[in-house]
């Protein structure tokens, strides 16, 4: 799930499309900004999610961020490994550190997300602020 093949949200989630399934994680930028991730709360498999709903929590030592679902649909799998070992996300946010898989109910929702290049541009603007 190399970053170049992913789509991104303003809240720094990435999405990798596998047919009608969206694999979701957080960007390298987000994992670096958070610092050492110590605790992750994810929705349960089977949960229905709406695009940009807060569906989980990512805690670092002195900060906490919400996980937003980039797409609507049903959670079909969660990555238990990152719940047990949150440091995986810091180490490998784009591969081993994926969060959840969602079966999309409307794949056209992907159209509003950033491409990799657009996301890089967005990050550049954030830095300038």
């Amino acid at each position: 799930m190399v970053p170049e093949d992913c789509l991104f949200t303003k809240e720094h989630e990435w999405v990798y499309r596998e047919g009608d399934v969206a694999v979701i994680g957080i960007s390298e930028y987000a994992s670096t900004e958070l610092g050492d991730i110590v605790y992750i709360e994810l929705p349960e498999a089977g949960a229905a999610v709406q695009q940009m709903d807060p569906i989980g929590t990512i805690e670092a030592v002195k900060t906490v961020a919400e996980l937003f679902s980039p797409v609507s649909g049903e959670v079909i799998e969660i990555n238990q490994a990152i719940v047990d070992h949150p440091e995986i996300v810091n180490r490998d946010p784009h591969d081993e550190g994926w969060f959840i898989k969602v079966r999309m109910s409307d794949s056209s929702e992907l159209d509003v997300l950033f491409s990799h290049d657009e996301y890089q541009e967005y990050l550049g603007e954030q830095e300038d602020d």
């Binding site: 605790y39 805690e59 670092a60 030592v61 002195k62 900060t63 906490v64």
Partner: peptide, 9 residues
């Protein structure tokens, strides 16, 4: 576990 606390959350 300071993320439980008021100064962060």
């Amino acid at each position: 576990l300071q993320t439980r606390e008021q100064h962060i959350r």
